[in-house]
Structure formats: C-alpha cells, structure tokens
Amino acid sequence: MKFRFGLLLILLVAGCSKNETPPASYKPEAPTAKIDPSTTATVSGVVTYTGDVPKAQPIDMSQDPACVLGKVPPNFGEAYAINKGRAANVYVYIKDGLGNYSYPTPPPATLDQKGCRYVPHVLGLMVGQKLRILNSDPAMHNIHSMAHENDGWNESQYPGGDAIEKTFNKPELMIPVQCNNHPWMKMYVNVLSNPFFAVTDAEGKYTISGLPPGTYTLGFVHEKMGEKTLKITVGAKEHAVAGPAFSSADIK
C-alpha cells in the first residue's frame, strides 16, 4: 500500500512538474561559416517503389457528421501514396556531410485540417521555424504531437478557430501528430537543424536547392518503410540526381 501511495505521489509530482518545466532548447554548435550563394548546388530525384502496393485502407468518417459533409465515400488512408511505382510523402533530408553553417529561420509553415485530414501528410520544419496550424473544417479537432526529443502537446481547435502556432526546438524525425477526435487523422512532422529537406510530391519527386558544394548522405524516410540513404557529391553550381528504390520488402 505504501508503495502504491508512493508511486501516486511520484506521478502527481511528475504530472505537476511537467507543465512547469520550460522547454529545453536545442543548442547547436556556433556557426562558423556562411554559404556562398554563387556556388550553391541542387539535388533532385524521384523516389520509386517496386513490388505489390499494400491495399489502401478505407476510412470511415461517419462518427463525425461534420467530416462527411459533401463527401463521396470511400476515403482511404495515405500511408502508401504510391502511384505508378513512385512514392509520395517520403521525407528527404541531408543526413550527414554539412559543415557548420548559419541559416536564417524560414518563414512559418502551415498545417491545415481540411476534410478531416491533415494537409500535408508529411511536413518538414527547421528548428525554431514556426508551424501555423489551421482548421478549415466545420469539425472540432485536437492536435496531439507525440514528440520524444521535443516537448509533446495536445490542443483542441474549434471550427475556423484561431491558428495555433508551435515551434520545435530540437531535430527529430517523423514526429507523429494525431487527432484523437478523428483517429484516422495522422501526419508526421520532421525537424532539422538546417533548411535542406523536402517531401516527395504525388509523382515521387523532390528537389533540395541552395546546398553548398560537398559530399553528403541523403536520408529518405517513409512512415511505413523506414529509412534509406544515398551518398552524393555535388560541385559548385552542379545539379545531382539521386533517388532510392523502396520495395515491398521494406514494409515493416
């Protein structure tokens, strides 16, 4: 019994102290160089997929009438957005090889809730960049970030409510964001300490520009198939092409 009360006390203390602790900030090394804009290079490519594409999973939005207004069912999940062997929603980033440059913080990125889905499904942010969350639906949503390195949060947003603004202070990949009011609503936020990232479009294409010349490891992350890496070298003003091939064997 003593143990149970002791445990409860610990939990209470932990619960109370969690909200009072200021968010820990990511402290990168002090930048030592600036990128020369006259020498920057570009990397682009297509992420492909071979093998059987998993069957699209149907979504039943009928539990909230506001989600099915004007909609023609069926709806399907976005985990395997693969079209003619090309994979969308793959997060591409510079995993390794960058020097210690300084970068301006990009303007705020937007995450919308439209048709009881998150738009976009996969999003990239730089550390410190603002994320503006909108609700364009006639439904009430809650936005629950399940970060591990960054602080998690969970807030509700009324239909057409004020934008919620959040920032992430540490690099972290594939942070799940979920709406517990509509459990099919899930997306992923990726946070990087530099601005060199992209998300593949519906045709599996991506482009990362403004890179200083060098040799890099590119990371390609998919929510179900994990990560693949490729090494590339780009000279000043060059354009390199790189794209990995995921396959059904990568599905976890």
Binding site: Q63, D64, A66, A139, M140, N142, C179, N180, N181
Partner: peptide, 17 residues
C-alpha cells in the same frame, strides 16, 4: 473544453472520452 458542466458536441472521440 474549459467547462465543468457544459456538455460538448458528442461526436467522434469526444463522445467516448
């Protein structure tokens, strides 16, 4: 949703919670 007594719209996950 900020209230001790007001019943929110009982739709989606809210109706369970």
């Amino acid at each position: 949703f900020g209230s001790l007594y007001r019943i929110p719209p009982m739709v989606g996950g809210i109706k369970y919670e």
